[in-house]
Design a protein around this nucleic acid. Structure first.
Lengths: 363, 363
DNA sequence: GAACCGAATCAAAGCGCTTAGATATTTCCT
DNA sequence: AGGAAATATCTAAGCGCTTTGATTCGGTTC
């Protein structure tokens, strides 16, 4: 287990210079076939594995991309998680350690998967870092020092810290395009999605008393709310139920809905800012004995897996999450070749997914 | 976007030597407080981010661990995937690109998650690499050059390639402990699990005609089969249905079960080698109009999320997957400190999870 | 056979950081 | 105040690789 063999050892064994060894691995066509085999044989016998540190230092590029994957489930302010309303199970209690909370892949998981797949497809190494809410910045900086480009989730890290990193290497962020100029962004067409789902409720199901609800004010959610309002106005529906936005976590979504149930002032539909919000809403409604979609329709936004399996299944707007991840990788690699191009905001299309919770029939 | 600032720039700006800059970041207590602040200020103004390549080269350690995550779903021989028998959905067709196959986290996903969480908790950087079945070895070698230790899934990579890597850096493998001496292993107590589930069928449900079935002969599966046999023998149950093991994929599990259905020679229970096998079995049975568990019981092994949600829910033996991932990281870090200790085989406990598919009632 | 040429190989200069060991500075005694 | 001991900082030598420009080599051409 002594310190492993280096180019020097291989070179000596093959009777060539270290330059030739390097060429053999990086630009094989520059080396005469016979020499190449000699070197490869020596490398093989020695069990030579090139040091990425040395290469990275010499080339000025590490050849790896980074993903800063913030775990929302570990976030104390993250709310009740995704499991509300899902089928319970005899072995659930005490199984937390083993991933009960993660029965389904979450939004971030699916995007992360896209990043992984695209990196692998392109032979790029991928460093995934996580917070560790304690020392997010230290972790981020550590990752930044290891990679050529970085993909991050919104609000996983302070803006200034991110800006600082972005001065050194390309950074691409999901959503939040309005803030953080100076880096690329991948977003989805929130407006179209929210409009489509609102119009469907109005025209498809003849509902007019719609209420928008969501836990967090984010760029995405704001755009959705805006489009929701627009769709109501366009349809000539007057806003009986004011959009509710228990922003900042003052009032949780659950509490808000619970109150509404008690007051008996239910709208005809809850248009939720996200699927996770919708799951919470449906959970509360079930507990209060309110039938979905009979008494009230519920819609989400995102298209996470859990919404597909829950009963009633969740009508939603699906974001192309895997593709978003892949796109981030593409943007990063592009940016490495063209550092001076102006920052890009790539807006990906969404798709209305009609399921049971709005009143549609499953096929 | 010029090449970023280095220790030299920071040193110059702070009016100290580069050594002091380095100390400020690595061993702050060795630097006088006033100097430290000077350096940190300079670093901050310059947007200094230490280069991990340079550090790795100088220290002989990269400070990162690697995970070689083979994607079984991309494996052409991987069989029908996990979705057999799961609820279908209006938006399923054509949605493949967006992760339909991964509606639930698979075994590898949960283990990977454990690796990630433990790395993050310990402030370790984590490199996840994937095959790319084409050039697995190249990818593996690339990763190996970047990390201090490597975690791999069984049979994701040729044994010799792995052995070669293991000569250079610590490697820990899931399962397969019988092969590949010379590296650490994390396994589970397959024997206890298989025995427990078999005994439950015999004593709990009074079944005597049990049939073992699984797609792949692996160390894990062999141990399970062995314990299955042992449990039958111990219970004095004679083996009416010979353990069926369509090894090597000659006959797929699906075909085997289909044939059995047609012949009308059903056992009282299918004891499957893995949950994925069990899902396939249940899918075929459903298609053949055979009621589970009324006409035949089915059990799995692993405890993947899908088995919890499918109806009837799947009785199985749960592996502590997240913990296995965490354990791999622990072993790796241990091994770095104690290279000469003999290789370890860590056998983690499993837990019998009774659900509907064996005939038990959900609570 | 001298002059020349392309191809193959090599020598050497870093890349940005860590860390012994040397040196400068401060602290604390007597 | 003088000097030893403790502390703070610096000098300089790598770490293993890439890559430019120089050198060597085996042939061609005239």
């Amino acid at each position: 287990m002594a310190k492993g063999p280096t180019v020097y050892h291989v070179a000596e064994r093959a009777g060539v210079s270290i330059a030739t060894v390097s060429f053999t691995f990086r630009q094989p066509e520059k080396v005469k076939a016979s020499t190449r085999e000699l070197v490869l044989a020596a490398a093989d016998e020695l069990g030579y594995v090139p040091s990425a540190s040395a290469r990275g230092l010499a080339r000025g590029r590490t050849g790896a991309l980074g993903l800063f994957a913030y775990d929302y489930l570990l976030d104390p302010s993250g709310g009740p998680g995704v499991q509300g309303g899902l089928p319970h199970d005899v072995d659930a209690p005490g199984d937390r350690e083993e991933g009960n909370l993660r029965l389904f892949p979450l939004y971030v998981d699916e995007v992360q998967r896209g990043v992984e797949l695209e990196c692998w497809r392109r032979g790029q190494a991928l460093l995934v870092g996580g917070g560790n809410p304690a020392n997010n910045e230290a972790v981020l900086s550590d990752i930044a020092g290891r990679v050529d480009g970085l993909a991050v989730f919104p609000r996983s890290v302070p803006v200034e810290a991110l800006a600082r990193i972005a001065r050194r290497i390309p950074v691409v962020e999901v959503s939040e395009s309005l803030r953080n100029r100076g880096m690329d962004h991948v977003t989805v067409d929130n407006a179209s999605g929210a409009r489509a789902i609102t119009e469907h409720l109005i025209k498809g199901h003849g509902l007019t008393e719609l209420m928008f609800i969501g836990a967090m004010p984010s760029t995405d959610n704001d755009e959705r709310l805006e489009a929701f309002r627009g769709a109501l106005a366009a349809a000539g529906v007057k806003l009986r139920h004011e959009p509710r936005y228990p922003a900042g976590g003052e009032l949780t979504v659950a509490e808000t809905v619970r109150t509404i149930c008690h007051q008996g002032s239910l709208p005809q539909a809850f248009v939720c800012a996200t699927d996770q919000d919708a799951l919470v809403v449906m959970d509360v409604l079930a507990a209060a004995g309110v039938a979905v979609p009979k008494q009230v329709a519920v819609t989400g936004f995102d298209g996470i897996a859990a919404g597909r399996v829950i009963r009633p299944s969740l009508t939603t707007v699906r974001q192309p999450m895997e593709r978003m991840g892949r796109t981030m990788v593409e943007l990063l690699l592009d940016r490495l070749d063209h550092p001076e191009k102006p920052p890009v905001d790539l807006k990906l299309p969404v798709r209305l997914v009609l399921r049971e919770s709005c009143g549609c029939q499953p096929s």
